[in-house]
Design a protein around this nucleic acid. Structure first.
Length: 493
RNA sequence: CGGGGUGUAGCGUAGCCCGGUAUCGCGCCACAUUUGGGAUGUGGAGGUCGUAGGUUCGAAUCCUGCCACCCCGACCA
C-alpha cells in the first residue's frame, strides 16, 4: 500500500474511488459494473442491516424471500413499471452450457433455450404482487407487512463502486393495506424510519420530501424520499418510500373482501435502501486521510496498538491491554487489539486512520510507567494523554464515542446548512449552481416541462419538495409563473 | 451507440517512433538491525508483453482482425 490519498479538493471522484479501495471496502470484479465487497466493507453493511432490520421489526414487519428470477411476462403487467425498468434488465435465455466441438471452451447449448425468458429482478414488485394475490382474500389478511433482504440487478451504463453498481444489495419492503390512508401512513412511516436511521446511526442529516412526477418510481402514485448532501455539493438519494396506490393490485388482480361484504383492490407500498448508503456514509464524513466512520456503524470502535521491544515488554503491555479490552467489552464497546509484530506502529496508525476506526488507544512502556494511555480520535485527529486513575476507562471511551458520533453529525449538518442556498432568479440559479453547488431552494411552477428544461440546461434536478416546505408566494426561477413554495434543486449522483 | 484513449510481474510504469528476448518503483520472500507516526541494509522470487494471425533470420516494438477496460457524450428510481 503506497502512501497518501488523492486530495478531495483536487479530484473528488478519484479520492472517492481510491478511498473505497484503500480502506478495504470494495473492489471491482471481473464483471463490468459489479463489485466485490470486502470483509471490512461488508461488516459495515452488516451493521447497517442489523439496525434497519431491528427498526423494521419494531414497526411490525417480517422478513421473507422471493426468487431472483422473474418471468418476462410479469414485467409487462404494470405499464409504467416496465417502461421504467425495461432498458436495464438482464435476461436469462438458456439453462445449459456444453463443450464446443472445436475444443475452444464452453458454449451456450442452443438446445437449451427457455420457453419464456427469465428476468433477473431489478426490483421485486411484480413477483411479490403475483404471490400476494394468493395470500390476500379478506380484510383479515391485511395489512401484510413484508420485507426482503436481497440482491438486484440493473444494467446501468455507467457504474461507480457502491453508488451505482450493476448488482447491488438492498432491502425492499412490500406492504398491502385495506385503505389508501393506511398505505399512505405506512409510506410516511418508512420514510421516517430511514431518516431516523440516517441521522442517528450514519450521522447523516437528510431532507425528507416528496418526489416530483418526473422523479417518481415507475408504478408509484407518490414517492417519498430522503436526500443527503455530499461534500462535493452533489445530492444523493439515500432512500425512497413509495405509495403504489392500487396500481400493482390492479395489475395482478389482488382483491380482498371488505368487512362490509364488498370486493376491493388492496393498496400497496414499497420502500428500499441499498448498499448505496455505503457510498453516502463514505462521502459524507471522510477526509484526505481516509475514512471517517460514525462509532455506531464502525466494525470496531476502538483499536489498541501496543508499543514494545521484545517479547517480554509485549507480554507486560498485553496484560494491561487485555484488562482495558475486557472493561470496554463489558459496556458493549467493540475493540480490536492489534499486537501483530509484522507491522510497525506508525504503519498501523496510518492503516486505522485510512479505515476510519473512531478511537485509537496506544499503550507503551512509557505509559505503564506513568500509568497513562494515549487516546486519539479519528474525526479530529487529536490525541490526549489519559491517566488511569482519572476515571474508569470504559466510562471515558463511552463518552468519547458518543461525542464523536454527535460531532460528526454536527459537522455534516453545518455543512449542509451552509449549502442550502435560496435563489430567486435564473441568473442567480445558474451562478450558485456553478460556483457553490449544494441544494438550491427555488420557486418552481409545478410543471414537468420546466423541470425538464432546467435539467437540460443545467443538469440540476428537483431532488424533492421538502415536507417542511413553508407556504410562500413567489415566481418560478425559470418560467416566471406563480409558485407557492420552494423546492430543492441539485445536481445528483 | 458516437468521439477519444489504454492494455507490459499482485499494483503503478519505462521501452514502441528507429525490431535483437524487458526498465524502474511499490508490494512479496529470507536474514539482520529496528519498533511512541507509513523503518533500514543485504540477498532473493516473480513476466506466454490483452489475444489471434501476418511481415521478418528475429516482434513488447511494424501490419491486420478480435477482446477487454478507461475517459467524454448519450442513458440513469
Amino acid at each position: 500500500m503506497s502512501k497518501g490519498l488523492p486530495k478531495r479538493s483536487e479530484d473528488y471522484s478519484l479520492w472517492y474511488n481510491e478511498l473505497v479501495k484503500r480502506a478495504d471496502l470494495a473492489e471491482n470484479s471481473p464483471v463490468r459494473g459489479c463489485m466485490v465487497i470486502k470483509p471490512y466493507g461488508y461488516s459495515i453493511w452488516e451493521k447497517m442491516q442489523a439496525e434497519l432490520d431491528r427498526m423494521f421489526k419494531e414497526t411490525g414487519h417480517s422478513n421473507a424471500y422471493f426468487p431472483l428470477f422473474i418471468p418476462k411476462s410479469f414485467l409487462s403487467k404494470e405499464a409504467s413499471h416496465v417502461e421504467g425498468f425495461a432498458k436495464e434488465c438482464a435476461v436469462v435465455t438458456h439453462y445449459r452450457l456444453k463443450n464446443a466441438e472445436d475444443g475452444s471452451g464452453v458454449i451456450v447449448d442452443p438446445e437449451a433455450k427457455l420457453e419464456e425468458e427469465l428476468i433477473i429482478r431489478p426490483t421485486s414488485e411484480t413477483v411479490i404482487w403475483s404471490t400476494y394475490k394468493n395470500w390476500i382474500q379478506s380484510y383479515r389478511d391485511l395489512p401484510l407487512l413484508v420485507n426482503q433482504w436481497a440482491n438486484v440487478v440493473r444494467w446501468e451504463m455507467r457504474t461507480r463502486l457502491f453508488l451505482r453498481t450493476t448488482e447491488f444489495l438492498w432491502q425492499e419492503g412490500h406492504t398491502a393495506h385495506a385503505t389508501a390512508e393506511e398505505a399512505m401512513s405506512e409510506t410516511v412511516q418508512m420514510m421516517n424510519v430511514y431518516a431516523q436511521f440516517a441521522e442517528e446511526f450514519m450521522a447523516l442529516p437528510v431532507v425528507k420530501g416528496k418526489k416530483t412526477a418526473n422523479e417518481r418510481f415507475a408504478g408509484a402514485d407518490e414517492t417519498l424520499c430522503i436526500e443527503a448532501l455530499m461534500q462535493d455539493g452533489k445530492a444523493l438519494q439515500a432512500g425512497t418510500s413509495h405509495f403504489l396506490g392500487q396500481n400493482f393490485a390492479k395489475a395482478f388482480e389482488v382483491k380482498f373482501a371488505t368487512k362490509e361484504g364488498g370486493l376491493e383492490y388492496v393498496w400497496g407500498t414499497s420502500w428500499g435502501v441499498s448498499t448505496r448508503l455505503m457510498g453516502a456514509l463514505i462521502m459524507a464524513h471522510s477526509d484526505d486521510n481516509g475514512l471517517v466512520l460514525p462509532p455506531k456503524l464502525a466494525p470496531f470502535q476502538v483499536v489498541i496498538v501496543p508499543i514494545y521491544r521484545g517479547e517480554e515488554e509485549l507480554a507486560m503491555i498485553s496484560v494491561k491491554a487485555k484488562e482495558i479490552m475486557a472493561e470496554l467489552r463489558k459496556v458493549g464497546i467493540s475493540v480490536k487489539y492489534d499486537d501483530r509484530d509484522t507491522q510497525k506502529p506508525g504503519w498501523k496508525f496510518a492503516e486505522y486512520e485510512m479505515k476510519g476506526v473512531p478511537v485509537r488507544i496506544v499503550l507503551g512502556p512509557r505509559d505503564l510507567e506513568n500509568k497513562t494511555l494515549e487516546i486519539a480520535r479519528r474525526d479530529t485527529l487529536t490525541k490526549e494523554s489519559f491517566l488511569w486513575e482519572e476515571m474508569p476507562i470504559a466510562e471515558k471511551i463511552e463518552a468519547l464515542l458518543e461525542e464523536i458520533q454527535q460531532q460528526i453529525y454536527k459537522k455534516a449538518f453545518d455543512f449542509r446548512k451552509k449549502n442550502i442556498t435560496e435563489v430567486n432568479s435564473w441568473e442567480e440559479f445558474k451562478q450558485v449552481l456553478e460556483q457553490k453547488a449544494g441544494f438550491l431552494a427555488a420557486h418552481w411552477d409545478g410543471t414537468s416541462k420546466t423541470e425538464d428544461k432546467i435539467k437540460e440546461l443545467t443538469k440540476a434536478t428537483i431532488r424533492c419538495i421538502p415536507l417542511d416546505q413553508v407556504a410562500e408566494q413567489g415566481v418560478c426561477v425559470y418560467s416566471g409563473k406563480p409558485s407557492s413554495g420552494r423546492v430543492l434543486f441539485a445536481k445528483a449522483y
